[in-house]
Amino acid sequence: MTQIFAYIPFKNGAAEDVALEFPAAAKKIDKGASLTAVVAGSGADLDKVAQEMTSIYSEVIKIDNALFSYPNAEVVRKALVNIIPLDAVFLFAHDTFGMDLAPGLSVKMDSAYAADIVDFEGIDGTTLKAVRQELGGAVSTHMAIDISSGAVMTVRPGAFAPVEGSSEGGTIVDKSGDAGDLSAKRKFLEIVEAEVGDVDITKSDVLVSVGRGIEDEENIEIAQELAEAMNAVVSCSRPIVDAKWLEKSRQVGTSGQTVKPKVYMAMGISGSFQHLGGLKGNPFIVAVNKNPKAPIFQVADVGIVEDILDFMPELTEAINDL
């Protein structure tokens, strides 16, 4: 029987959605596997999450330490190495905390490592088959992972179907005393909140969103004109903010804003999961991209293979003529 552990990320006493997705991932690894949730934190927030997890997981390992009031990956890692069996299959979310902690943990546990898994296809002997994506989602791959000495893996948030809130009636096991030496060479200082911009893209029902396909700062105006015609607001993907062509508050995605528009016009955006991670509420997605193989066409409702620099002005004109 495979022993699977899942690290539950939480904020302000509430578990992230991925907590409901690990059980589906674990089933796809091995139907008969045992699954244990691991929660590390401190005080009332931790207790609340641990309790909540007993309705989903049959066993919940709780690690309480004042040092975890903000989870510093390096410190948490030290505790995990002492508490989790080294040959376990250990799941994390592929989020900014999982990315920070999991690769190093796999070294310390001497386990196989695989990141950002979107699907599992079961175990054959000691070989686990997993599905990942490469090149920004342009291609998928099957991975064979040797789990004979354990595996640390991150799974993509949203990739596995969440379980319905059941009532497992699981037990909480307090392992706080086993954390061991937690001295570290990295110290958490503070969180600096993202700046608020002039425009709140989360309030708009229609977004005209531009990606690297806009090619040049001057061309942003073309999108602005389309947005005006549609009574919409211009948002963008990350490279546009990196290039400083638009302000950060216009960025849609996991490291930007989460938006829930009715209609999302993805103009020259390839459709990376970090971008799509900011798009919630099942909007009607229109994708215009000159590459017929762009991954965005797999998630869009309507796809158009055109050059946005030609297409947007024509669409603007047609709408203005209505």
Binding site: S140, A144, A151, D301, G303, E314
Partner: peptide, 27 residues
């Protein structure tokens, strides 16, 4: 301990409805 077995292009169900024709027709 991890090996790439193959590459594939996933079958993502129906995907987008692709609008075709002249630009005017598409618009």
């Amino acid at each position: 301990k991890t090996k790439r077995v193959d590459y594939f292009v996933p079958d993502m169900g129906e995907g987008a409805e692709m609008l075709e024709g002249s630009t005017d027709e598409i618009i």
